[in-house]
């Protein structure tokens, strides 16, 4: 799978990972890498602008903690974000179903000319 195809869906991917529980950016990136089987080959630093925008949009909330003398930002999904994930998930499933209907296994035409 080409990484480009996944980049356009980064918002949904990030929200879906955070849906499972609060995460900091590094953990998010690691989980994305594992769950996409390394298909999402993007510069790690580019997820942070996305996270900040999703927070500005009220879909994510963040809080700062201190770990080992360093500041660490942890993101979690807001109730508004949960609704958006559900909507985007439905959109994606409908889209995937439609494409699968065309690109999936071929069925015999009807009526069968044979």
């Amino acid at each position: 799978m080409k990484a480009e195809a996944l980049k356009g869906h980064l918002d949904l991917l990030l929200l879906a990972v955070v849906e499972d529980g609060p995460r900091h950016g590094y953990a998010l990136m690691e989980e994305l890498r594992i769950r996409t089987a390394d298909a999402l080959d993007l510069p790690e630093g580019t997820i942070y602008p996305a996270l900040h925008r999703l927070e500005r949009a009220g879909l994510l909330a963040s809080k700062w903690t201190e770990v080992g003398g360093r500041r660490r930002r942890v993101y979690e999904l807001t109730s508004h974000g949960k609704g958006t994930v559900e909507e985007k998930r439905r959109d994606w499933q409908a889209f995937a179903l439609a494409v699968q209907g065309v690109l999936g296994p071929k069925v015999e035409p009807w009526p069968n000319p044979a």
Partner: peptide, 10 residues
């Protein structure tokens, strides 16, 4: 044809 998400500039 690129994603409109944050990586559109990449």
């Amino acid at each position: 044809g690129r994603g409109a998400g944050p990586l559109a500039t990449v």
